[in-house]
Design a protein around this nucleic acid. Structure first.
Lengths: 361, 361
DNA sequence: CTGAAAGCGCTTACAG
DNA sequence: CTGAAAGCGCTTACAG
């Protein structure tokens, strides 16, 4: 009812006997104001508890805000598709503020492909005001970061953190803890009996993703901490090369009959799960990562005991939000943001999805 | 760069050869426009894919938006405190839009207290534009709902749903499923051996909360489905009356030496857990609900095996957001919104908190 | 039924 | 260093 319940910029201008322009300059430290006036305006803002109306601000500013997301290509229902979903949700919400997001994708198993995406980013004709980057290839991401630092373009990491870089923020899990929790669930379901098959699933042999490496170290750490003496049988599987995978797995299980558990450190645990199903190896306990369709099917049918899940949609959503708020309102987010590591079992997975994790209206 | 990249209301007014006033009337169905003009304006909006600028809209509207949240009183670290946290976070975000939230609390164990809070709500001098209500007392909530329906004040349910009411939306878990998952975790940790103590913790004897009742039915349903023949030992505990509780529990364990598991269907499983700790009953497996400080301590020390958690902060946050978007932008949310039911173990609880679940910047 | 004008609370040139 | 004025895209009386 009261008209001027909350004080406006105009009000404090009047109180300070200056123009709104001057107040604006003080608020944004644009300089060109006398010491005297700076002091007085600041004092009054303090006194009356002035809080700028961000709505009005953003309407007046109207600077375009073009973000680019550099993430692996995706198909419906997979991990990176959920990330994109979150990005698009945030884009919608910030559309009125002039936020626009371009998604540039690469092959998550190919460093070269990532570097090509970086080139595309650098060659964009539109100006780029902020970048969201999936940190699969550590070295290459660091190079990109340095490039962005030099141009003063803010960027956000998602998926896995790389410390000591100038990222505006990181949204994702503590990957090492993710590995520990995977180990915890696997050991519990194996009742601490038997050996473990560790499958590395990839294209470029030998180059595990940043996240995969950290999870593996967390996994080993937990085994050690529990004092669990175990034989780790490591195998390399290749996405899409079923014949190769079957051969490798057959051999592993033949040579190591003590294997009772299996794990893989990226989303593709369904490759192992499908194999177990095909060979009807019901005695092998399997734990994997991420809530993607083929994994969920295996969880539901009992070939996977537990899935350790992140919230990719929240990562993407918050990445866009953080950059938008920085660019539009000059608001800085907390830098390291560790999201929960969800434990999904047959009984509770159905309540987890991109919508429930990101309840936007 | 392009000035008129996105079309404004002004643009479509020009294209339709009418004034902005007319376009506005068409958009909001305010009437007083000729059929001919309605048709033409709509057609053009369609053609050019007009999307209103919500920022500008809300700046122009400036109608105050006063929400009231009716929730149990809370202390730092407990369940309803997280709910309030989410409410306040949303309030902050929507502050510039003129959204204000008053929180009215009541004693969660007293129906009378809830009814008193409802009276306070009805006697408020400020106009109330929307209500968020914690649905602990089903009958009383239904009465309140009818009152609000009659006054056309929109309302949102949190905590537990009551169907067939005119709620704008519900944010919370599927309480029945919550009970099933509790049963699943308890049976697994008991290795399907022994009897179960069911503790009803309350003040008003005999009046379990809506949520508690639903969880209990889900719990029983799971036992049945698993064909688990079990002795359920039911006891009534009273918050704050330690002497009474100890006596009741001592008696129950004495008379039923086969008890190997225990459960309670609200946040207060720490009452049971503290008892188990005091009596050093390490052989009893305990499963409870909600991530509140005393429960977490017991989880960490091994007296509680698992906590089934909801995301109260998200419920409160989304309640405010839904009402705000309805009142300001006339946007309706999905009605039933089932949030995930999180399984918290000693290994992953530390990544769950009001901040990580509600990553706002 | 319709339009012209003022205003929401900020920012942005521009003139001094 | 400072202020007056126009403008962001919409809504809201008001006059016809």
């Amino acid at each position: 009812m009261q008209k001027n319940k909350n004080i406006r910029l105009t009000d404090i201008a009047r109180l300070a006997n200056v123009s709104v322009g001057t107040v604006d300059r003080v608020i944004h430290n644009r300089g060109r104001v006398s010491e005297e006036n700076i002091r007085r305006v600041k004092e009054i803002m303090e006194q009356v508890g002035y809080r700028p109306n961000l709505i009005a601000r953003s309407l007046a500013v109207k600077k375009p805000c073009h973000l680019v997301a550099l993430i692996p290509d995706f198909r419906p229902g997979d991990y990176w598709s959920a990330m994109e979903y979150g990005i698009r949700r945030a884009e919608e919400e910030w559309e009125s503020y002039g936020v626009k997001v371009s998604v540039l994708t690469f092959d998550q198993y190919s460093k070269v492909s990532f570097e090509q995406a970086v080139s595309r980013l650098q060659e964009m004709t539109e100006t780029v005001d902020g970048v969201i980057v999936g940190t699969l290839f550590k070295e290459a991401v660091i190079q990109l970061s340095e490039h962005l630092d030099a141009r003063e373009i803010p960027y956000v990491y998602v998926d896995s953190d790389i410390e000591e870089q100038g990222r505006l923020a990181y949204y994702g899990t503590d990957s090492v803890a993710g590995g520990e929790i995977g180990a915890r669930m696997l050991l519990a379901s194996m009742a601490f009996q038997g050996d473990i098959l560790v499958a590395h699933i990839q294209h470029d042999k030998g180059s595990m993703s940043t996240q995969g490496q950290k999870r593996y170290s967390g996994f080993l750490q937990y085994l050690k901490q529990q004092g669990y003496e175990v034989n780790l049988v490591e195998v390399d599987l290749w996405i899409g090369d079923e014949a190769h995978n079957e051969q490798v797995l057959d051999e592993a299980f033949r040579n190591h009959p003590g294997i009772r558990g299996a794990v893989t450190f990226n989303s593709s645990c369904y490759i192992l799960g499908d194999y177990l199903e095909k060979r009807q190896k019901h005695e092998i306990r399997l734990v994997g990562y991420d809530l993607i369709d083929p994994n969920v099917r295996l969880l539901n049918e009992g070939y996977v005991q537990a899935l350790i899940a992140q919230r990719p949609e929240l990562q993407g959503y918050n990445g866009v939000k953080a950059l938008s708020r920085l660019l539009l309102f000059d608001e800085k987010p907390q830098v390291v943001n560790l999201l929960p590591i969800d434990i999904l079992l047959k009984e509770n997975y159905q309540f987890y999805n991109r919508v429930s994790n990101l309840l936007q209206i």
